[in-house]
């Protein structure tokens, strides 16, 4: 297992405990629920679109620090991106967690979400990190 502080770092902790992305969007264009039945993590993602661009993204829900911070950081990263850009970022994130890509150049586009890199070495927590990303896959 990787060092605990690599996973529970300040960025992840701050997002999990005090996320400004945890809110409702009025007149959201898309809403989708995500759920990890084995551990009870659940989120509801909302998107507000401006044509092809994700104008706003927010979530509600409950779960562990990893699932909640991953959702919050994903919201930051994808806000303002086009659908095509968002799809690429989501794919890169999932590949990173599954250890299918380690190319630093590729990973740069993940911005803050690169903080979850070490989750790849904690099999029991992979599904927590991926919950939001699998949920938004269905919305793009």
């Amino acid at each position: 297992m990787s060092d605990l502080n690599d996973v529970y770092n300040d960025l992840i902790m701050e997002h999990s405990m005090n996320s400004y992305n945890k809110r409702k969007i009025e007149n959201a264009d898309k809403t989708e629920k995500g759920h990890n039945p084995s551990c009870g993590d659940e989120i509801e993602l909302q998107l507000k679109m401006d044509g092809n661009i994700i104008e706003d993204i927010a979530f509600t829900g409950q779960g562990c620090a990893i699932s909640q911070s991953s959702t919050s950081i994903m919201s930051d990263v994808l806000r303002g991106k086009t659908i095509q850009e968002a799809k690429e970022i989501v794919k890169t994130f999932i590949d990173m967690i599954k250890r299918e890509t380690t190319d630093e150049k590729q990973l740069e586009k993940l911005e803050d979400a690169i903080a979850f890199k070490n989750i790849a070495y904690m099999p029991a927590r992979v599904k927590c990190a991926l919950l939001a990303w699998h949920t938004i896959e269905k919305m793009l």
Partner: peptide, 19 residues
Amino acid sequence: HPHDLATILDSCNVAIRAG
């Protein structure tokens, strides 16, 4: 959250169940 707690306890070599 219990799952975070279980992960942290695991890093201290303590095996508990969470969920």
